[in-house]
Amino acid sequence: MEILIPILSAAIRSGTPILYATLGEILTEKAGVLNLGLEGLMLLGAFSGFSATMMTGNPWFGLASAVLVGMGVSAIHAFLCVSMGANQVVSGLAITMFGTGLSALLGKAYVGETIRGIGILPVPLLGKVPVLGPVFFNHDPLVYVSYCLVGLLCWFISSTRWGLTLRAVGENPRAVDSAGLNVTRLRYAYTMVGGGLTALGGAYLSVVYTQMWVEMMTAGRGWIAVALVIFGIWNPLRAAFGSYLFGGVGALQLRIQAAGTTVPAPLLLMLPYILTIVVLVVISVRKGKGILLGAPAALGQPFHREERD
């Protein structure tokens, strides 16, 4: 148990950026929009969070600007997919290319710089509980925010009127339209909120977790988040579990490397990517062919108000 606690604690921390992105994508997909641009959004978030923190000296300002950048760039995705009815897969890839390129281009000047990010803030009382305390309640504030967000989203999606509307927009946009609600506006809103959360996940990496900026620093976490949405069958709680699982694999791999092993580093680095495929296969085999349990029925399909289906 003594050995496990630091690993579990590290799993929470390194899973948190993935969790933010996964939660963002759950919201976006629940509204019927598929955003494969998470990798690019995370990178833009990581860069803008870092640079804004460096310029203002205030990490909270950095995080806020990352959210704004994420919302702005995902608005491009919303414009193309919702207003113009463009192919959502390709648009997401374009977001990833654009985000990867722009973050590297603008971020070149920031490589090697350091910032004072956000530090650890143990929760009073809860932090003292044996085992659970050090694992769950001895982190930075953003980890606690993500706990609250998981609970909030579970409640919001399943038990509120707005959540019902959100689900309906992803399942049957025509019905939402008939009820007098604006499908376009709702899809824009959830795509942008999702993009903001994703960028926040990226900013967590640069402002809180590593406190530095490196090109391509997300290393596929955005894509892992896309896979985790499916793994979590669009459920925030299961998504959290998946994120921490991946965080744990990342943390474990670092520890194995640090402990000095004969296994070459590239082979160890493959682990999270292999795990992603394995997880996807397991979930798909269990669901059976052709049935995507929990997937919003209208996911990926543009809605044209004036046309019949």
Partner: peptide
């Protein structure tokens, strides 16, 4: 995987990019 179990090929092909590149690194450095 896609044909047999409807495993999302966007993600699997992308993950396999990372794996292939790391595999190449393994051979190049090793």
């Amino acid at each position: 995987l896609r044909a047999r179990w409807s495993v999302n090929e966007t993600i699997t092909t992308l993950m396999m990019n990372y794996i292939a590149i790391l595999l190449a690194d393994y051979f190049i450095y090793g």
